[in-house]
Design a protein around this nucleic acid. Sequence first.
DNA 1: AAATACCCTTAATATAGTTTAAGCCCGAGG
DNA 2: CCTCGGGCTTAAACTATATTAAGGGTATTT
Lengths: 219, 219
Amino acid sequence: MLRTRLKVKLFLFQLLVYLNHIITLPVPINKLFASFDNYLPLDAEEREELRERVTERKIKRRQFILQESDVCKHYTFVAEGCFKKFQVDDKGVEHNLQFAAEGDWIMEIDSFYADKPSRVYIEAIEPSVILQIKKPDLFYLFTNNPKFDRNFRVIMETRFVELENRILQAISSTAEERYLSFINQYPHLFQRLPSTQIASYLGITPEFLSKVRNNIAKK
Amino acid sequence: MLRTRLKVKLFLFQLLVYLNHIITLPVPINKLFASFDNYLPLDAEEREELRERVTERKIKRRQFILQESDVCKHYTFVAEGCFKKFQVDDKGVEHNLQFAAEGDWIMEIDSFYADKPSRVYIEAIEPSVILQIKKPDLFYLFTNNPKFDRNFRVIMETRFVELENRILQAISSTAEERYLSFINQYPHLFQRLPSTQIASYLGITPEFLSKVRNNIAKK
DNA sequence: AAATACCCTTAATATAGTTTAAGCCCGAGG
DNA sequence: CCTCGGGCTTAAACTATATTAAGGGTATTT
């Protein structure tokens, strides 16, 4: 009888520690768990499965997590900070393909799945904290639990829809329309990013973006 | 003894029928099977599983298989012919987001998965034969056999890479460069499609494409 | 076979976006 | 403290692309 009460107490204590860990401390892994809550939330056991396969890293501003001609070895989840993914053309000009801030995933999918050398760079725009998962671990999760599969599938679909929208804009809208739509869709990025980075994302020169902003202000 | 030989004969006969069916006749479903051979080929049983869940349709030129504000109910595999997926802007101008010819898949992914009204049209450019699969059937295949899952995932990844390349081009290349790259990447489409459709895909006017072609010819 | 719609081209003019160059402001590093 | 580089802006000249309008050819429909 006494032993039972002791066990209960111990259990409650552990529970408390666990809850504290999960709820009150804003540790990076919790942001990852939270991000799945938008789709199919993970239970305690699944969270543990995921936690075991994920590596946390701190990244400095201007540090690269992927360089051209390297193979992309990880899916990267951004817990804090912000990254850009870009390609460099023959003239040395950078073209931003994607930004990834807290809660976003970033990787070079072609390089990752086909073990090809990457044609893009991924660089931290701010000091950041990331969680990375390697291919074998990701595949383990895919095959061992359909919930992971479904979750990562939805992440891809979401990106996919974003990409198609961006293409539509690229082939049908003026620079001003694209800029306004960017502000509207990514207000948190708009505040944090230097204009020159946004210009590169929109496919225009910084000088012209300046003019566009000026025109908008005049209205 | 006699019965056994009869059984063997019967079996061989059935096998012959099957092989004839699979190999010699270019029926639409075989194109679908063949398309999986690029990834993880399906065995006889899996083919049967797929065949049971797929509906064949003949589509006339200019016929729509998806209209704006309808919900996209199918993944569509093109066995013969060619389709375009496009959005219409406020001025009534069409903007081509995708072409799909033999061996390609086409659908409005956002509408399909989220049961949202579609913002795009999908229309046959040529008389076509398609194979369609509905959401519950697709999900059945996903959950019941990882090979389907993997195959459809790879199809998505491939499209994904194409989209990112197209965005890169849109933000970093001139119309002439994009046109040449289109010809290079999709020679079969270039031959079949009217220039005006290609112009819409590249995000330029037909008049300007005409000029671009002229410039290229002069060189 | 005629009528119609579509497709392609050309050219003049207008607009959107780039290039080059210069100057200003501010934060980081010596 | 100074200086140096990055980011932002302006403006003039230039280039890429759109718009408008017109004409000719070819395939589709009547």
